[in-house]
C-alpha cells in the first residue's frame, strides 16, 4: 500500500497512522449517520423525515469524500503536506450539520 519506497519510508509510520485515523473517523461518522437515518424513519416516512434522512446520507457522503481526498494524499506521498484548513472545516461542518439534523428530528 502507499507506493512509498523502502528508503523513503517513515520509521514511525506517521502517514499510515494518520490515514487509519481518518478511516476510524469515517467509521464513527457512518455509525452516527446510521443512527440518524434510523431515528428519522422510526416515526413513519413523512416528507420531513425522508428529507432529513436523505440529508444525513448526503452529509456522510460529504465526509467520506473529504476523508478520501486526504487518504489519497497520505497514501501517495512519503512526506505528505499538512492538512488544509478547508478540509478540516468541511469535516467539522458535516458533523455539526448532522447534529443539526438530529435536533430538528428531536424537536419536530
Amino acid at each position: 500500500m502507499g507506493g512509498v519506497s523502502r528508503a523513503g519510508r517513515d520509521p514511525g509510520l506517521q502517514p499510515e497512522r494518520t490515514r487509519l485515523a481518518w478511516r476510524r473517523t469515517t467509521l464513527s461518522a457512518a455509525v452516527a449517520a446510521v443512527l440518524a437515518v434510523r431515528t428519522t424513519l422510526r416515526g413513519g416516512a413523512s416528507a420531513t423525515a425522508v428529507t432529513v434522512g436523505a440529508l444525513c446520507c448526503v452529509l456522510f457522503l460529504g465526509f467520506l469524500w473529504v476523508a478520501h481526498q486526504r487518504i489519497r494524499v497520505l497514501a501517495a506521498e512519503s512526506r505528505p503536506p499538512a492538512l488544509a484548513p478547508r478540509q478540516a472545516t468541511a469535516a467539522v461542518l458535516c458533523a455539526v450539520a448532522l447534529a443539526g439534523c438530529a435536533a430538528v428530528v428531536l424537536v419536530a
Binding site: S28, A29, V31, A95, A102
Partner: peptide, 16 residues
C-alpha cells in the same frame, strides 16, 4: 472529531 461524533451518535441513541 471522533469524540464529537460519538457524542452526536449518543444523542440519537438516547432518543431511540
Amino acid at each position: 472529531l471522533r469524540t464529537a461524533l460519538a457524542l452526536i451518535g449518543g444523542g440519537f441513541a438516547v432518543d431511540q
